[in-house]
Amino acid sequence: MSTAPHLPLWAALLVAALVVAGAAITLVGSIGLVRLNNFYARVHAPTLGATLGVGGVLVGSMICFSVLQSRPLLHEVLIAVFVTITTPVTLMLLARAALHRDRVEGNPEVPQSDLASLERRDG
């Protein structure tokens, strides 16, 4: 069950800490997906996993493979760049779709106009 590549002790500790931290942050984000009580609040939750969660695991795996093959292995950079660019796009699209639907239905919890908050503040 617990087979793993043989790394020097310092690298093993570092990789272990990074991977567990990344997984824990992802779990916190997904718990938010369950616990937050409003769709727009829930959209914020997965970004935890998509930023530091993915980041922790990717840096861990970069260190692991760099030490194993004794050359820098930058494959993970591709995934990191990809996730950083795609996650905001999906979340923005989803939020806009949800806002559009709520406005069509006349849901009072969402602002009917983009300027509602400015008008409230400026009087």
């Binding site: 984000g29 727009y40 959209v43 914020h44 939750a45 970004t47 935890l48 998509a50 930023t51 950083t84 996650t87 905001p88 979340l91 923005m92 939020a95 806009r96 806002l99 602002p111 983009d114 300027l115 400015l118």
Partner: peptide, 22 residues
């Protein structure tokens, strides 16, 4: 804004230059 947890870009109106965010 969307990548940092806690802020979410929702809609930008290029004519007025206003940004709606959550």
């Amino acid at each position: 804004l969307t990548c940092t947890p806690g802020t979410l870009w929702v809609n930008h109106d290029p004519a007025r230059g206003t940004l709606l965010l959550h």
